[in-house]
Design a protein around this nucleic acid. Structure first.
Length: 562
RNA sequence: UGGGGCGUAGCCAAGCGGUUAAGGCACUGGGUUUUGAUCCCAGCAUUCGGAGGUUCGAAUCCUCCCGCCCCAGCCA
């Protein structure tokens, strides 16, 4: 087992980042890699973050190295402790461990301040009094160089004094910023004297009221990486233009280490949105039930939906790491959870939309205990007893009054197998003439077919699932479909993404009946309802009121054909 | 029309001057099956955005062209 796994890993080609790391190790540039996952605590983690988490922690694991969890908390106006806890929880749930390496950018506020003073002393930074509007004008455009700020050549002393007064809260928000002195004519806008500190008279979730100036991302991130001795700082493509700035700070400040920033493409999934802002909007406008709504592609949503950590890790592994902006089909994610659940989920029977069947030749008071396999390919998963009675429920969709030829289920005069039980033949049905609804069907069973085989060798094409009407346990079932009804809800800039919300993304079934072995199932329990799909007991489920969430349906080639 | 990136099948993605251009998803056909599931087997790019060039040999190197993405927050 261990051998075959390592063989598989050895065969799998390395992505370009792992190749770089392998080369850096081979050349002796680094003894061991150190990575980091740097979320901003301003929202919940989603499947896109999982890609980054699996990359960074995965590299650490493969190299027996460490990956730091660092909260990038430089903007106290947007960040909250609540998110810190949810993020830690989600990373842990995904199966990763940062050990003692839990950090916050705010841990480095003192260092960052000292480095800023050093920049000023070197004549590489200055306090600028341009307001936001003016600064934009001075910055120039994509095709025209910017103009130098009139404050660009203040003396070191004046800059030190002003920066000090910024820090001491003597100056108003927006009135002054500290800027790096680089090159207003650079074709890279990030190099046109970027702001490195701004005044924000806001309490910080960790440092309280200690600071009223806060450092900007570009300045903070590279130095934080250097202070933590990160070797490879992995981020998404939009930061490619920031790399020269990343390197500039570290070169000028001569930090003890100079990590290498490498950019990779972020994950895009069809039929969903991935930006934290939009997810936040869905939550705050109650378009979903919360961050953990099972339709949300947040880690907590996927967890509640029934996804396993392994399935998410496999998914991330499968989609690979590259620099092309790609769109992954939702089916790939669904496939990864099916693959995992197919192996581990016990099979059970549950009738989502019940239709009563009366087996007219079965004794009224009789109950038989029929044995069902918990997994047809894995006898080690054991068996369970299924009570069989004269009245049972079957799936409404398993009966048709006028079935087409290829319909291998119940219809007038047709014979099917009840899974693990008997062959039954439909003899009659009752229909509500006003609504046209079939209210019950009558069948006879063949006592010779106990267990599901006919001694005379006769075959049936269909096997359907069932639950005893007297022993069945009522349940509420949530069926989920994609949250949006078009592949890319963000594509059209003129149409709000919310216009594309799928009105049928949630279907609640309140009259479902499941087999009695499921009574009292604990939240988080995952099963396969045979012929239906994989389901997970919802966190709000109780012994009195069972709730199942459909994680994903089974592949259905019959539905496809229709 | 500045700068930085990216183009291999319907969707991902290997490939790193000499291979029949990996693999997965999807799709199609067949087999097994007491889940129309799973599993198994087979098929699925004479061609790598386009055009030239270098070379005995190019998806891989060079040139030009085309297309797409990102950048003008005191957000990250």
């Amino acid at each position: 087992m261990a051998t075959s796994e390592t063989e598989i890993k050895a065969e799998k080609p390395l992505d370009f980042i792992r190749q770089i790391i392998r080369d850096d190790l081979a050349s002796g540039k680094h003894k061991t890699p150190v990575t980091r996952f740097p979320p901003e605590p301003n929202g919940f983690l989603h499947i896109g973050h999982a890609k980054s988490i699996c990359l960074n922690f995965g590299i650490a694991l493969e190299n027996n190295a460490s990956c730091n969890l660092r909260f990038d908390d430089t903007n106290p106006s947007k960040e909250e402790t609540e998110y810190v806890e949810s993020i830690k929880n989600d990373v842990k749930w995904l199966g990763y461990d940062w050990g003692d390496n839990l950090f916050f950018s705010s841990d480095y506020f003192d260092n960052l301040y000292d480095y800023a003073v050093e920049l000023i002393r070197m004549g590489k930074a200055y306090v600028c009094c341009l307001d936001a509007e003016e600064m934009r004008e001075y910055r120039g455009t994509l095709t025209e160089a910017g103009k130098e700020s009139p404050y660009r050549n203040r003396s070191v002393e004046e800059n030190i004094d002003l920066f000090n007064r910024m820090k001491n809260g003597e100056l108003a928000e927006g009135s002054h910023v500290l800027r790096a002195k680089i090159d207003m004519a650079s074709p890279n806008l990030n190099m046109r004297d970027p702001v490195i500190y701004r005044i924000m008279k806001v309490d910080h979730h960790r440092t309280g009221s200690k600071w009223c100036i806060y450092p900007m991302y570009d300045y903070t991130h590279c130095i934080s990486d250097a202070l933590e001795n990160i070797t490879h700082s992995l981020c998404t493509l939009e930061f490619e233009d920031h790399r020269p700035l990343y390197d500039w700070f570290l070169d000028v400040l001569k930090t003890p280490a100079h990590p290498r920033q490498i950019e990779f493409a972020r994950l895009n999934l069809s039929y969903t949105v991935m930006s934290k802002r939009k997810l936040m909007q869905l939550v705050s406008e109650n378009l979903v039930s919360g961050w953990d709504d099972p339709r949300m592609l947040t880690i907590s949503g996927l967890r509640r939906r029934g996804y396993t950590p392994a399935s998410i890790r496999n998914f991330c592994d499968e989609i690979g790491i590259g620099k092309r902006e790609s769109w992954i089909d939702m089916g790939v994610l669904e496939n990864s959870i099916r693959n995992d659940l197919n192996e581990i989920a016990p099979r059970v029977m549950g009738v989502l939309d019940p239709l009563k069947v009366i087996i007219t030749n079965y004794p009224e008071e009789q109950t038989e205990e029929i044995e069902g396999k918990n997994h047809p390919q894995k006898p080690e998963m054991g068996t369970r007893k299924l009570p069989f009675t004269r009245e049972i429920y079957v799936e409404r969709s398993d009966f048709m009054e006028e079935p087409p030829k290829k319909f291998f289920r119940l219809g007038p005069g047709r014979e099917v197998r009840l899974r693990y039980a008997y062959f039954i033949t439909c003899t009659d049905f009752v229909k509500d003439e006003t609504t046209g609804e079939i209210t019950e069907i009558h069948c006879t069973y063949d006592p010779e077919t106990y267990g599901g085989n006919a001694p005379d060798g006769r075959k049936v094409k269909g096997t359907i699932h069932w639950v005893s009407a007297v022993h069945g346990v009522p349940a509420r079932i949530h069926l989920y479909d994609r949250l949006f009804n078009i592949e890319n809800p963000d594509a059209d800039k003129d149409v709000n993404f919310k216009e594309h919300l799928n009105p049928d993304s949630l279907t609640t079934l309140t009259h479902s009946v499941v087999e009695p072995s499921l009574a009292g199932s604990a939240p988080g329990t995952r099963v396969q309802f045979e012929r239906q799909g994989y389901f997970c007991v919802d966190k709000d489920s109780t012994d009195e009121s069972l709730i199942f969430n459909r994680t994903v349906g089974l592949r259905d080639s019959w539905k496809k054909k229709k």
